[in-house]
Simulated scan of single mutants.
Amino acid sequence: MAPVTIYGMNMSTCTRRVITTLEEKSVPYEVVTVDLSKGAHKQPDHLARQPFGQIPAFEDGDVKVFESRAIARYISNKWASQGTDLLGKTAAEKALTDTWVEVEAQNYNPPLSTIVAQKVFLPMYGQQTDEKVVAQETEKLEKVLAVYDAHLADKEYLNGSSFSAADLSHLAYTDYYVNKGGGEAVLKKYPNVWAWWQRISSRPSWQKVSAMY
């Protein structure tokens, strides 16, 4: 099998979402670095792959896909018969997986990504954290975490009893939040969420990907 190609950066949360999916599905891949600090994402060759000048972009032969959740879904569908089943076996499991992928994108990610930007990425580039923004977004995030905690009260994973794309989609930003953004204390206030995080972050795929940076 010829390797697929990801155009991105190892430290990018969205790039990590795609790489983790490939690891779970046992699909060979290569990563071509697109250095945001040098403006490589705004150059014509990358804009031909990703017209909005973002990362990652993905190529599988003649197939070109961008947007990390769409890429992950493509990988999960094309290589459905190998590696981890990330979509769900029954119609109900698939619907629940899709639901929580959407919840992550629409409810979980907005406050969390803002906090991580403030606590991790801005200081990385010599800029100052705005603690007022962090406090506001943490309040929003905790309302979301309360919903997750109730949902996970009788479940090991978001779609029920099996690890899926829904869980995987949470890994990259939550890892930055817990390990670099001071978020461990917040997650521990929600015991079902914390237990779920311990389960999903211990997977070999994520251990490998998180060690890349």
Rank of each mutant, 00 (worst) to 15 (best):
residue 87 L to D: 02
residue 162 S to M: 03
residue 132 K to S: 14
residue 15 T to N: 10
residue 208 K to R: 11
residue 65 V to M: 06
residue 51 P to L: 06
residue 141 L to H: 08
residue 81 S to R: 04
residue 193 V to S: 05
residue 96 L to H: 03
residue 165 A to Y: 07
residue 152 L to F: 12
residue 130 D to F: 04
residue 8 G to L: 07
residue 90 T to S: 15
residue 101 V to F: 03
residue 73 R to H: 12
residue 28 P to D: 13
residue 175 D to E: 09
residue 50 Q to D: 01
residue 78 K to A: 06
residue 17 R to V: 10
residue 44 P to R: 04
residue 65 V to T: 07
residue 174 T to R: 02
residue 144 V to M: 10
residue 129 T to A: 07
residue 19 I to D: 03
residue 113 S to C: 09
residue 105 A to Y: 13
residue 77 N to P: 00
residue 122 L to C: 00
residue 173 Y to G: 01
residue 60 D to K: 13
residue 84 T to E: 14
residue 13 T to S: 13
residue 213 Y to C: 00
residue 207 Q to N: 04
residue 61 G to T: 07
residue 145 L to K: 11
residue 7 Y to R: 12
residue 45 D to I: 00
residue 84 T to I: 11
residue 141 L to V: 07
residue 150 A to I: 08
residue 57 A to L: 01
residue 79 W to V: 05
residue 16 R to V: 03
residue 32 V to L: 08
residue 143 K to G: 15
residue 154 D to P: 01
residue 165 A to F: 08
residue 191 P to S: 11
residue 185 A to V: 08
residue 180 K to Y: 15
residue 175 D to N: 15
residue 180 K to N: 04
residue 42 K to A: 12
residue 186 V to N: 01
residue 156 E to I: 00
residue 195 A to G: 08
residue 79 W to F: 15
residue 13 T to G: 15
residue 59 E to Q: 14
residue 142 E to D: 04
residue 28 P to N: 08
residue 44 P to V: 06
residue 27 V to D: 04
residue 64 K to D: 00
residue 196 W to A: 06
residue 165 A to W: 03
residue 93 E to H: 09
residue 142 E to N: 14
residue 70 A to E: 03
residue 101 V to I: 15
residue 62 D to I: 01
residue 82 Q to G: 08
residue 112 L to W: 09
residue 5 T to A: 06
residue 80 A to L: 14
residue 90 T to D: 00
residue 69 R to V: 09
residue 39 G to R: 11
residue 27 V to P: 04
residue 104 E to F: 11
residue 69 R to L: 13
residue 212 M to L: 14
